[in-house]
Amino acid sequence: MARINQRHKPGFVPLTLFFILFLIFLYGPTATIAILSFQGPDGGLTFPMNGISLHWFRQLFEPQQVGDFGGSLLRSVMLGFAVMICTAAFSLLAGLAYRRKFKGSDALFYLSLVSLILPSILISLGIGIMFDRLGLAPTWYTSAFGAHLTWTLPFGLLIMFAVFNRFNRSYEAAAMDMGATAWQTFRFVVFPLVLPSLIGVSLFGFTLSYDEFARTLMTSGTFNTLPLEIYGMTTNVTTPVLYALGTVTTLFSFSLIFCAMFAVHLLKKHRAKTVN
């Protein structure tokens, strides 16, 4: 038996090589941009590196001729948070609603899935036109906010479906048996138990909104969100500031993920400590 374990199956080497290629394809561009963002002051958009500096990061936070990095980042973060909160709240409520069949539940479910299937750019265009017809000016906090929700809500809903499918109903029955009202059962049992999943839905909602391009394109109005700004800069900016921007935004996303993971880790450690 030991022999079988030592020897690889015939496909092992080619498949491993293929997987490595895939990893390079996946992370190569990001790594390249990260490296190029440390280009010296006299360096250009391509290799070779002309020295190493933080010059372009400093440049990033100074007023640019084209591109308002600080403003667009702030808008994207605020929009992301608003979308995150709405997604979490409505996904939770919808998940609870769908635990029992109600009239028209199937129709409503398919209707909400339609916006996942439709091309994003069409939805963006539609919302843009609708605002125009209604004589409203599209802005990032109205029309773009709605456009992002058409994207994040169905995802959040699907996740909450999965969560409640696995939810053991005997916890609720036990709470009821001990005299809890429906609200107390939700407040002290159901909510704490689905909270980790809800945090997941929130993070998901935030990241989906934070990097959403197509659905913002026709709906953001005068001021750009970050993805639109970056896109605008790729066509206008010809310095490594663009790369510094890429690096900073990537780091921002990573730090969000690490914060979440660290919080979970702390929570687990706290539990382990209370026991021993």
Binding site: N168, S170, Y171, M176, G179, A180, L193, V275
Partner: peptide, 21 residues
């Protein structure tokens, strides 16, 4: 309802709340 009966049910798989000690 259960809470007005003066009974207490012990569930088959105990149904202890996993988030509480």
């Amino acid at each position: 309802p259960p809470r007005e009966r003066g009974t207490a049910l012990m569930f088959q798989n105990y149904a202890l709340f996993p988030h509480l000690n």
